[in-house]
């Protein structure tokens, strides 16, 4: 069985993990220019990932495998939770509140980890099976982002 979707999307998760770690590293010397840039990079990378899922992979999956609608809904509601944290993060950057910045990144980290675990162990393998020959297209699009 192909695991192209699982591989490509999991790899993008790791790229986002690196960005989050970089945003935390940037806080070491309270250099707000660096912290602002790192936070922006992180939010952009994660939004790109959500975009690929919400407007491409998830609709295709729920169309050819309707039973996936409910787990997809859970994943999308967690995306909404993360977007709330993005707003809080940007607000902490604007207010130069270092402890809020770090606390929000920590919260985001844990939310992302448990979210990714569910996607990587359930939803992506399901997509690989259900989308069959089309899986390669989604994987390539994710890799190109």
């Amino acid at each position: 069985m192909s695991s192209r979707i699982t591989d490509a999307f999991s790899q993008d998760h790791h790229r986002c993990d690196h960005r989050l770690a970089a945003a935390e590293s940037a806080a070491k010397d309270s250099d707000w220019a660096r912290m602002t840039g790192a936070a922006q990079d992180l939010v952009e990378a994660m939004e790109r990932h959500f975009e690929q899922e919400e407007s491409s992979l998830f609709p295709a999956l729920s169309e050819c495998f309707p039973a996936s609608a409910s787990p997809i809904e859970v994943m999308c509601s967690e995306h909404a939770q993360m977007r709330h944290l993005f707003e809080d993060l940007q607000e902490s950057v604007r207010g130069q509140d270092r402890s809020a910045y770090l606390g929000i990144l920590e919260t985001l980290h844990f939310l992302v980890q448990q979210h990714n675990y569910k996607e990587e162990s359930v939803l992506y393998p399901l997509a690989d099976r259900a989308l069959g020959a089309r899986a390669g297209d989604f994987a390539e699009r994710m890799a190109d982002v």
Binding site: S77, Q81, H84, L85, A100, L102, E106, F110, L111
Partner: peptide, 25 residues
């Protein structure tokens, strides 16, 4: 994390955005 997660979930499902949930720290 579990405290934050449960509260945030309830906030979203109840659409109660007037309450601001504190972060983990």
């Amino acid at each position: 994390f579990l405290s934050w997660f449960h509260l945030q979930y309830r906030q979203l499902s109840g659409r109660r955005f007037d309450v601001r949930i504190p972060h983990m720290h």
